[in-house]
C-alpha cells in the first residue's frame, strides 16, 4: 500500500523521510508525467510519496552578506523570473524551460532532483559551481550540484535527506548560452551550450564550458578549463579548445534527434561562442 504524506512543516517532512524511502514531490511537472497512466486513473507510484511543493518555509529568495543568492527549494521558476536578485543567466535559461504554465508550477530543485541530462537549469548551476543544502533529521550537508548529480536519474541524496536550499554563489562571469530544442517553445533540449568567462587586461582569467543533453549528465571539465585560464585572449586557440571537448561530448540517438546532429551542433555552438569571446576582447 502506497502512503501519501502531505507535511505541514519542514520538520514534519524530515521526520517522515527518516522512516520512509519515498518520492519527493515538488511541483509535480516531471514526476506526475512519469507516473501517469491514463486519464481518470491515479498516477502509479511504486514507493511512498512526500509532497513538499507547497511548504511555505521552503519558498524564498534572499541574498547573503557575501552576495550569494539563496533559493528555498520549493520556489517556482516563475518567482525566480520575477526576482530582481536572481542572476540574469539563470533567468535566460529559465525563460526557455517548458511553458509559462509549467514555470508557474515547476521548481529548480525538481530539475536537480530528477538528474536528467536534459535538465536545462543544471547547465548554469553546474557551470557556476552552485550548491545544494541537504537536510535530514541528523543534520545538514552542502554539496556542489556537480557532486550531487551522479548520473542519469542518479543522485547523492540519502533516503532521509531532502534538498532545502539552492545556493547560487556569486560569480563575476560573462555568459554565452544557447538551447536547441525541436521548436521555439516547450521543447526538450536536444543540445545546449553555456560558456562563462571573465577577461581582465586582455587575459582570460576565468573560462568555463558546460554542455547539456549530450552526455549522461551535464558535461563540464575543469582540467580543460584550467588549461585556458590566465592566457592572453588572443592566444586562445579555438580549434584546440574544440578538439579538447570533441571526445567528451558523447550524445545518443533518440526520438528527438541523433548523435551526429547533437555533436556537430555542440561543437558549432562552442566555436561560435569562442569566436564571440575573442571578438569581445576590446569591450
Amino acid at each position: 500500500m502506497i502512503n501519501h504524506y502531505v507535511p505541514t512543516s519542514l520538520n514534519d517532512a524530515l521526520k517522515y523521510l527518516s522512516t520512509h524511502d519515498c518520492y519527493i514531490m515538488s511541483g509535480g511537472t516531471d514526476l506526475m508525467v512519469q507516473k501517469h497512466v491514463s486519464s481518470l486513473v491515479l498516477p502509479r507510484f511504486d514507493k511512498d510519496v512526500l509532497y513538499v511543493g507547497e511548504l511555505k518555509e521552503l519558498q524564498y529568495i534572499k541574498e547573503d552578506k557575501d552576495g550569494n543568492i539563496l533559493i528555498g527549494a520549493e520556489t517556482k521558476y516563475a518567482d525566480l523570473l520575477l526576482s530582481p536578485i536572481v542572476p540574469e543567466i539563470y533567468k535566460t535559461v529559465i525563460k526557455e524551460i517548458a511553458s509559462p504554465n509549467i514555470r508557474n508550477m515547476a521548481t529548480m530543485v525538481g530539475n536537480i532532483g530528477n538528474a536528467s541530462p536534459a535538465g536545462d537549469s543544471l547547465v548554469p548551476l553546474i557551470l557556476n559551481d552552485a550548491e545544494v543544502v541537504l537536510k535530514s533529521v541528523n543534520g545538514e550537508r552542502v554539496l556542489k550540484v556537480s557532486e550531487y548529480i551522479l548520473g542519469v536519474k542518479k543522485t547523492a541524496r540519502k533516503n532521509d535527506e531532502i534538498i532545502v536550499e539552492i545556493r547560487l554563489l556569486k560569480q563575476n562571469l560573462r555568459y554565452l548560452y544557447r538551447k536547441v530544442g525541436a521548436r521555439k517553445a516547450e521543447s526538450i533540449t536536444k543540445v545546449s551550450c553555456l560558456v562563462g568567462y571573465q577577461i581582465k587586461e586582455k587575459k582570460l582569467i576565468d573560462f568555463r564550458v558546460a554542455f547539456g543533453s549530450v552526455g549522461v549528465t551535464i558535461i563540464r571539465n575543469l582540467e580543460i578549463e584550467n588549461k585556458y585560464k590566465n592566457i592572453e585572449v588572443k592566444d586562445l586557440d579555438v580549434d584546440r579548445v574544440i578538439s579538447d571537448y570533441y571526445q567528451l561530448v558523447t550524445p545518443i540517438d533518440d526520438q528527438r534527434s541523433n548523435k551526429e546532429y547533437r555533436h556537430k551542433v555542440a561543437m558549432n555552438l562552442l566555436r561560435k561562442f569562442l569566436l564571440e569571446l575573442k571578438g569581445g576582447i576590446d569591450e
Partner: peptide, 27 residues
C-alpha cells in the same frame, strides 16, 4: 519542417506530444 514521425520496426518512435511536436504560437 517540424513534425517528425518515424516508424522503426513497425512502431512509431514519437508517441507523445513532447516528442511529436506541432508548432506553437512562437513557431
Amino acid at each position: 519542417y517540424l513534425e517528425n514521425e518515424v516508424a522503426e520496426n513497425g512502431v512509431f518512435k514519437q508517441t507523445k506530444m513532447s516528442d511529436y511536436v506541432i508548432p506553437t504560437s512562437l513557431d
